[in-house]
Amino acid sequence: MRPFRYERADEVPAAVATLVKEPEAAYLAGGTNLVDLMRLEVTTPEVLIDVRRLTSDRIEELPDGGLRIGAAVPNSDLAADPRVRRRYPVLSQALLSGASGQLRNLATTGGNLLQRTRCPYFQNVTTPCNKRIPGSGCSAVNGYQRDMAILGASPACVATHPSDMAVALAALDAVVTVAGPVAERRIPLAQLHRLPEDAPDRDTVLERGELITGVELPPPHAATRSRYRKVRDRASYAFALVSVAAALEVTDGTVRDARIALGGVAHKPWRAITAEAVLRGAPATRESFVDAAAAELAAARPLPGNAFKVPLARNTMVSTLLELLEQAR
């Protein structure tokens, strides 16, 4: 680990100002990913600005019936919150399927969103990686591809985003609130993370100095059932090969609304808008679910080492939707 200066800011503007001023500064929240990446020297900040006490660690009701989650809320608290469990079960399930009890106690909401890919080449400083060193090349695209993306990847990067929570938030149409050097802004979660294109070093659309202060959830639909299904190599304590966050609203045998996001398949939580469009207004049947999954995955461009993710994602989408349909009955 490169030596660094540790600072604790008292106010958001001061923290933002420091980060803008110092070319190699970084925000520290729970540290579960950052400290690890620093030890591996994947990232080498000179200054760490501890922001855990700067942002809220509370979950608050919004006037419209939604919830505002402070950026410093630990993952475990968010998963256990009775309101989240009741109104947004998909979010609680996604959080609980990620990491371990110990990690969820340390990790924060903001930090979870900004965790970096676990691509083994990204984490190994002795192999080329465009995300770590732009222009050095992608080792994964012709390497070990099991955990890599099948949707939205580029020749420069085939990494996947590791968060489960973000997949659920994408399906829930969450909005991220951000403080920055110029002004505060609100970013729909589905637009927070980028596809790699030719700049895989940039995971998100955040500008230098911007700090996530919270996440807002819109009010849930009363008739909507939601669920998170994670498929992985080990029964627990593993990243997703494929995950599905789905919310389904069915009336009289017809899909009124469907919101689906996929994890483990792309550089960002993958909102399955094509599948959603196919489902809306369609009969709530296995056939519709199969059609919707197929439509979404028509855009998949798997590598030889992860081609299995296409049928896996299809089957997991279909079975998750069927389970929601079963619940709705």
Binding site: R118, Y121, S139, G143, D147, R234, A235, Y237
Partner: peptide, 21 residues
């Protein structure tokens, strides 16, 4: 990895051993 000659999945997050679950 045939190009580099190293074990790619060189940690417990990628080299899975059975957990309690």
């Amino acid at each position: 990895d045939p190009r580099f000659g190293h074990v790619v999945n060189q940690d417990f997050a990628q080299y899975h051993i059975a957990s309690a679950a």
